[in-house]
Amino acid sequence: MAEPRRSRWGVGLAVAVLVAAGWAAARGGHGTESTAPRKPGESAAPTATSTPGERPTPNNQDPSRYAPQVIKYAKRAEINPQLLMAILYNESYKPHDPAWERAWQRIKPDAAFGIANMHKAAFDETKQGRDFADRDWQQLPDDPALAVEAAAWYLHDLARQLPAERSSRYTEDDLLALGYNTGPGNMAAFARGAKPGAAAQSYLDQLHSNWSVAARALHGAG
């Protein structure tokens, strides 16, 4: 029985490599795994308990099912729930099946985990002093509620790092989304008027296109 299991794993891993490689080429660094350069020492940017038997798969990526958790944790973290929901839509470009994520992480150890695509450094920093301080980054693929909670508080922490005086080029939600994608150092530079690179601008454009979809998802949960 062990041999077939290993064979299936090998096929699944090969599929993961091919699919992820295709995404990487197509996305051009889009998302939280490949972003604008960060300052030395800066944390990587990030990333609903599933109904039993219901976990995200490549054919079941719509994050609207997590709208109740988005509303709950956005309120606790005092951030805009529409922003958090739109970010989940931005991050739904890759499969969030736990087995797939772990297969890909074996190939790319610095890959992000969970439905919000959060990196380990960002998660470990964000959880300090929070209700989920005893949770581990490795649990994110299996616990979407934890992923939503961590992403909400990461956005909360980013908001506290925004410069008091900033350019009118972007809204606060725009800047927080850029910070989520590229890290706090880059966010501060954008706030002062720096122009995002192609990958960051693509992330922001995608956020804008997902804005109304996020609103409808939240309305449906109300």
Rank of each mutant, 00 (worst) to 15 (best):
Q139C: 02
Q139A: 08
Q139L: 07
Q139D: 11
Q139F: 01
P141R: 04
P141W: 03
D142W: 08
D142A: 07
D142L: 02
D142H: 03
P144I: 04
A145V: 05
L146R: 04
A147P: 01
A147H: 05
V148Y: 05
E149F: 05
E149C: 08
A150R: 03
A151K: 04
A152M: 00
W153C: 03
W153V: 02
Y154Q: 10
L155P: 02
H156Y: 10
D157A: 02
D157K: 06
L158I: 02
L158R: 00
L158V: 06
A159L: 08
R160G: 13
R160C: 06
Q161D: 12
Q161G: 10
Q161K: 15
Q161H: 10
Q161S: 10
L162N: 07
L162W: 06
L162F: 09
L162V: 11
P163C: 13
A164E: 14
A164H: 12
A164Q: 14
E165L: 14
R166S: 10
R166H: 14
R166G: 10
S167K: 07
S167C: 08
S167F: 11
S168A: 15
R169V: 12
R169A: 15
R169T: 15
T171N: 05
D173N: 14
D174P: 07
D174S: 08
D174T: 04
L175R: 11
L175D: 10
L178H: 09
L178C: 11
Y180D: 01
Y180I: 01
T182P: 02
T182M: 11
T182E: 14
P184G: 12
N186Y: 11
N186M: 13
N186W: 08
M187N: 00
M187S: 02
A188G: 11
A188N: 14
A189I: 08
A189T: 13
F190V: 12
F190A: 06
A191K: 10
R192L: 15
R192F: 11
R192N: 15
G193H: 07
A194E: 13
A194C: 08
K195E: 14
P196T: 05
P196K: 01
G197V: 04
G197D: 13
A198T: 12
A199D: 12
A199F: 02
A200G: 13
Q201M: 06
L204V: 02
L204S: 04
L204N: 03
D205W: 03
Q206K: 15
L207S: 07
L207N: 05
L207I: 13
L207T: 13
S209C: 00
S209M: 06
N210R: 00
N210M: 00
W211E: 03
S212L: 12
A214I: 00
